[in-house]
Simulated scan of single mutants.
Amino acid sequence: METEQIPAAASVPRQQSRRPKDIPVPTRLLDRAGALWALLMERPVSLYAASMLRIGYGLLYLAFLLREFPNRDTIWGPDSPWTPELAKELFSQTGWSSVLTLSGNHAYFEICYTSAVLVSALFALGWRTRAMSVLFAVVVASFHARAILMTDGGDNLVLLMSVYLVFTACGRRWSLDSRRARLRSPGGGSPRRANIRRWTVRKASGPLHPFAAARETVTVVLHNCAMLVIAGQLCVLYGSAGLYKVQGGTWGNGTALHYVLNLDLFRPWPALSQLADGHAMLIAVIGYLTVLVQVAFPFALFSRLKYPVLVMLLGMHAGIAVLMGLPLFSGAMIIADATFLPDRFYRSLGARGRQALHALRTTGRASGAAVPREDPALHT
């Protein structure tokens, strides 16, 4: 994660400091604590990464609901083998709750399902993101609790992320809200430039109104804390998974993936699984790399090894999605890994998209063909 950069014109000049070895250790510790406090309190970090999480999980859950549309009544409906009465009995023991069990009426269930699809779509688009994030968390928790005996690790991760995203400012980039803010800001421009201008004006003109200043501080602190919790959650997830594998004998002798590829429950394409299982040495190497990458993940984040590790994790999750037939789990993990990509990566990605669209428009004008107009939201 990284903080949003402020132009040199908006920054305060610093005096040349002494060399680090000449500074006493207590002073250096206080400086580090002050820098950490400023990082937490002054500006929101990783706004593009938060927006990527919003888009990714919104679209992922939308695809999940649409895929299970023919089976919705069997999984979550009043006629499910796991009846609402059984679910309520389990809720009394576990403390879970679900809006789907408030009524056994079929019309009520259809309204809930349609509303869940709509909320997922609006959350991904970033329309009234603050309210939609709360509703999205309610939707995910309700569907998760209603069929909790059918969930897996991917469902658990989506549930956790939906709760964490409630506290983030995930609608400030690549959203309908950011587009509306850009159009309303003086002189137009992107929300990032508008935020920089407001930050500069605030530094030059003095403190804000107490209520506005408190609201802004709370928003920034909640967002930064939530992003740190998301990063910590992923470190714990990968680290514990790697350490758990280290304790297993099959991972130690390199045969774990061989047994996984021969489980009928996780063989959507048996011929493809057999083809992969035919390369014993390659399977063993991939198994060892999986353990190594997962154990090293929390430590690699503080070095340049972060990017090769993320690439290897992307390949690992893609393989799980194809070979084991777990697209929801793999998608949830791939989207979560996007947390650790810096904002400059997403800005460059947006710039490349605008260049490609501009080239398409230029080619269309040259050929006389009709091309779509550029969406101003791409500049956010």
Rank of each mutant, 00 (worst) to 15 (best):
Q5T: 13
Q5M: 09
A8I: 12
A10E: 10
S11Q: 15
R14H: 11
Q15A: 13
Q15C: 08
K21Y: 13
P26D: 07
P26Q: 06
L30G: 06
R32I: 12
A33K: 10
G34H: 08
L36E: 13
L40S: 01
E42K: 13
V45T: 13
A49I: 00
A50I: 00
L53R: 05
R54P: 02
G56P: 08
L59Y: 14
L60S: 08
L62I: 02
L62F: 15
F64S: 13
R72T: 07
D73R: 15
G77L: 05
P78L: 00
L86D: 10
L90C: 09
Q93G: 09
G95K: 08
S97L: 06
L100W: 06
N105C: 12
N105H: 12
H106G: 03
E110P: 01
A116K: 05
L122S: 10
A124Y: 06
L125Q: 09
W127M: 11
M132S: 10
S133M: 03
F136S: 02
F136L: 07
A137M: 09
V140Y: 05
H144K: 09
H144V: 01
R146M: 08
A147E: 07
L149S: 13
L149W: 12
V158Q: 04
V158F: 04
L160M: 14
S162K: 06
L165R: 06
V166G: 00
T168A: 02
A169T: 11
A169C: 12
G171Y: 01
W174I: 04
G188E: 01
S190C: 01
R193D: 12
V201T: 14
R202E: 15
K203C: 09
S205Q: 14
P207N: 04
L208D: 11
P210R: 08
F211P: 01
R215W: 11
R215I: 02
E216D: 12
H223E: 03
C225I: 15
C225E: 09
M227A: 00
V229Q: 01
L234K: 04
C235V: 05
Y238G: 02
L243S: 06
K245P: 04
K245H: 04
N253K: 11
A256H: 09
A256M: 04
L261Q: 09
L263R: 14
L263Q: 15
D264A: 15
L265C: 02
A271L: 10
S273W: 03
A276D: 03
A276V: 14
G287L: 01
Y288W: 15
L289F: 13
L289D: 07
V291C: 05
V291P: 00
Q294S: 06
V295K: 06
V295P: 03
P298V: 00
L301Y: 01
F302S: 08
K306F: 00
L310F: 02
L314G: 15
A318M: 12
I320N: 00
L323W: 00
L326W: 03
L326Y: 03
L328C: 02
S330Q: 03
M333Q: 12
I335V: 14
D337W: 00
D337V: 00
L341Q: 02
Y346D: 02
Y346T: 04
Y346S: 00
A351D: 14
R352A: 15
A359E: 10
L360S: 11
R365I: 02
A366N: 09
G368Q: 01
A370I: 11
P372R: 14
D375Q: 09
